[in-house]
């Protein structure tokens, strides 16, 4: 295989990549464009540049979707989910990766199997269970559901990170006098932190964007998450599309920012240098 690609291959690659980038970015550009137009102009000319820029859309969106409250709800749900998933999954993954548990294959199969079951299958029994427990309209209850939902994925992902850590590091720590907990907390966890970050990012995105469970279990206006508040903006008979676009942009911004800031640490490998490499 030659390392230098031919001109034709390069041209084709760039054309294709450009096409994909366009497909990915076009709707977002449209979103930004139309969030600055009045509703009437969007219907008349969705692709055109805005005439006078209408910032009022953002103000309306913020007020009508009660983002000052629903954003906090979303943050609490996502944050709680991240904390719960990362703490429980990292412990589980470490045990599955390192300790010789005879039934680990069965356990792994069980984890994988749960990820294949659709939410619709168990959302009703879950609802009634939560209703009995008085957990409807409780955002922490929703975080608990998310934790159960996303844990298998997190365990499977983190397990591969733990497996990649050389066993000698643990042994060195044991010889240095570390207890099992200290081995985990002071040696393993910092080394797999890129994996934990990845998990946190993915789980955070998923719970931020999750709709079905949130809309089922959170019914009071003051408890809904940002995504549901956004959904409620489109009325039965009329919708202000400018405002809806602005609201969508507001919801997307934190996610994009998170990704941009975490991307570097996301990729950065911590394991380099621990062993000869």
């Amino acid at each position: 295989m030659s390392l230098v690609e031919s001109r034709l291959t390069l041209t084709v690659s760039y054309v294709l990549l450009g096409l994909f980038a366009f497909i990915a970015l076009f709707p977002i550009a449209l979103l930004v464009l139309n969030s600055l137009k009045p509703a009437a102009e969007i219907v008349q000319n969705p692709l055109g540049l805005p005439g006078p820029i209408r910032w009022q859309n953002f103000v309306n969106a913020w007020n009508h979707a009660k983002f000052s409250k629903t954003f906090v709800n979303s943050l609490v749900v996502s944050g709680t989910t991240i904390v719960l998933v990362c703490s429980t999954s990292s412990l589980t993954a470490y045990v599955l990766a390192r300790k010789k548990i005879k039934s680990w294959k069965i356990f792994t199969f069980y984890l994988l199997a749960t990820t294949t079951a659709p939410i619709q299958l168990y959302i009703f029994p879950l609802y009634f269970g939560f209703a009995k427990l008085g957990l409807i309209n409780n955002i922490f209850g929703v975080a608990l559901i998310y934790t159960a939902l996303y844990s298998p994925f997190a365990v499977m992902l983190l397990r591969t990170y733990f497996i990649a850590v050389p066993k000698e590091l643990e042994e060195a720590a044991i010889v240095d006098g570390a207890t099992s907990w200290q081995v985990f907390w002071r040696v393993m966890l910092p080394i797999v932190s890129p994996g934990i970050l990845t998990v946190a990012l993915i789980i955070g995105l998923n719970s931020w964007n999750e709709f079905l469970i949130a809309t089922t279990f959170l019914q009071k206006q003051e408890n809904v998450t940002a995504v549901i508040a956004f959904y409620l903006l489109s009325g039965q008979y009329s919708s202000d599309w400018g405002e809806i676009m602005a609201a969508a942009l507001i919801i997307v911004v934190p996610v994009v920012l998170l990704f941009v800031f975490m991307q570097k640490r996301f990729i950065e490998g911590m394991a380099g240098g621990s062993v000869k490499g």
């Binding site: 240095d176 932190s193 240098g273």
Partner: peptide
């Protein structure tokens, strides 16, 4: 006795330095 009670220290083939 656990390793830490044996008063020994060990150098590993691949160094096993804590990368962080």
């Amino acid at each position: 006795l656990a390793p830490k009670q044996r008063d020994i220290s060990m150098v590993f083939q691949n160094y096993a330095l804590y990368p962080h």
